[in-house]
């Protein structure tokens, strides 16, 4: 009994000291992490806003691929939307922001976070990668498989099909969501 109590106290002391150290580290790092998250989100939104005035952010819960929505205004008229999107890449969840016009056409896409393989899926970070998606979503379908791409683009995504499909499907879901809003 006495031995068990002693062992419990030793473990309790180790846990208490560990907790105190973790709390101290969290107090130092949490504000820095919060600032970084905001800065990265703001930079992403700015890159896709196309010069329109962005409204307030609304959380979206009724679509598994869409996380948030921001209305874009052009002189009080709704010009389009920015959507926060997520997709399942080769290395796990990928997050994107994309702007759409009211007809669901993709205007700009920005990759925010991913864990894709260097040399393969990581190419999605490259300048020009999103060109194949921009302009699609309304008159032209969002490419979600390689057969919908021209030979040059198909060769560029070779070896990273999972990443390409994940981005395409997330953007397609965003386009559908915007069309569902009916230009409101």
């Amino acid at each position: 009994m006495k031995k068990n109590l002693k062992y419990s106290l030793i473990l309790l002391s180790i846990c208490a000291i560990s907790t105190a150290l973790l709390a101290l580290t969290n107090a130092i790092t949490a504000p820095v992490i919060e600032r970084q998250g905001q800065a990265s989100r703001l930079a992403g939104l700015e890159a896709v806003s196309m010069g329109y005035e962005a409204g307030a952010q609304k959380v979206v819960t009724d679509d598994p691929a869409v996380t948030f929505m921001i209305e874009l205004k052009d002189d009080r008229r709704t010009a389009g939307y920015i959507l926060g999107l997520k997709g399942a890449g080769y290395g796990g969840e990928m997050t994107l922001v994309a702007s759409y016009n009211t007809a669901g056409e993709i205007l700009r896409v920005q990759l925010l976070s991913h864990n894709e393989t260097p040399g393969l899926g990581k190419k999605a970070e490259n300048e020009g990668y999103m060109d194949k998606f921009e302009g699609t979503g309304a008159a032209q379908a969002v490419p979600t498989n390689k057969s919908m791409l021209n030979s040059e683009d198909a060769a560029a995504v070779s070896g990273s099909t999972v990443t390409f499909v994940a981005i395409g499907k997330a953007l397609e879901a965003g386009s559908r969501y915007v069309i569902g809003l009916g230009g409101k």
């Binding site: 150290l21 973790l22 580290t25 969290n26 130092i28 790092t29 949490a30 820095v32 992490i33 970084q36």
Partner: peptide, 9 residues
Amino acid sequence: TIIEMLMHA
């Protein structure tokens, strides 16, 4: 966990 928080920040 400490190194994880430090690297994240």
